Amino acid sequence: MKIERVDLLQAHGGWQVLSFLKLTASDGQAGWSEFSEGFTPGLTAVIRAQAQGLVGRDPREIPALMYELNARARPSAGGVNAQAAAAIENALLDLKARALGVPVYELFGGAVRKRIPVYASHTGMYRMRNPDLFRAAGAFVPRRMEDMATLGAEVAARGVGALKTNLLSFAADGTPRVHMPGFARGSAPDPALNATRALADDAAALVEQLRAGGGAGMGVMLDLNFNFKPEGVRRLAAALDPLGLEWLEVDGIDPPTLAALRASISTPIASLEAVYGRAGLLPYLEARAVDVAIIDPMWNGLGESVRMAMLADAFNVNVASHLFSGGLATAMAAHFCAVVPNLRIMEVDLDRVPWHDSLFQGKVEIREGCAVVPEGPGWGVVPDEEGMRLHP
Rank of each mutant, 00 (worst) to 15 (best):
M1G: 12
K2E: 15
V6H: 01
A11W: 10
Q16M: 10
F20W: 07
L21T: 02
S26A: 14
G31S: 02
W32I: 00
E34H: 13
E37A: 05
G38I: 13
G38L: 11
G42V: 15
L43N: 05
R48P: 10
L54S: 04
R57P: 13
E61H: 00
P63S: 07
M66I: 13
A73W: 04
S76M: 08
G78I: 11
A85N: 13
N90E: 03
A91H: 07
K96I: 05
K96W: 08
Y105T: 08
L107I: 07
G109I: 07
I116R: 02
I116C: 02
Y119I: 06
N130K: 01
D132N: 12
L133S: 11
F134M: 03
R135E: 14
A139N: 10
R143E: 10
M145R: 03
E146Y: 08
D147A: 10
M148K: 01
G152Q: 02
A153D: 09
R158K: 15
G161C: 03
L163T: 11
L167G: 09
L168K: 05
A171Q: 14
A172S: 14
R177E: 14
R177Q: 15
V178C: 00
R185T: 15
P189L: 01
P189G: 03
P191K: 03
A192Y: 10
L193Y: 04
N194S: 12
R197F: 09
V220T: 05
V220L: 00
F226Q: 11
P230G: 11
L236G: 08
A237P: 13
L240P: 07
P242C: 04
D254K: 01
D254C: 05
T267N: 01
E273G: 07
V275F: 00
Y276N: 08
R278Q: 15
A279D: 15
G280C: 04
G280Q: 02
L281M: 11
P283S: 04
A287D: 11
V290M: 04
D291Q: 10
V292A: 01
D296H: 07
P297Y: 05
L302G: 03
V306T: 09
L311P: 06
V317G: 05
F336K: 02
C337N: 13
N342S: 08
R344Q: 13
R344T: 15
V348H: 04
R352L: 13
S358P: 14
R367W: 15
E368S: 13
A371F: 08
V373W: 07
P374T: 12
W379Y: 12
P383A: 05
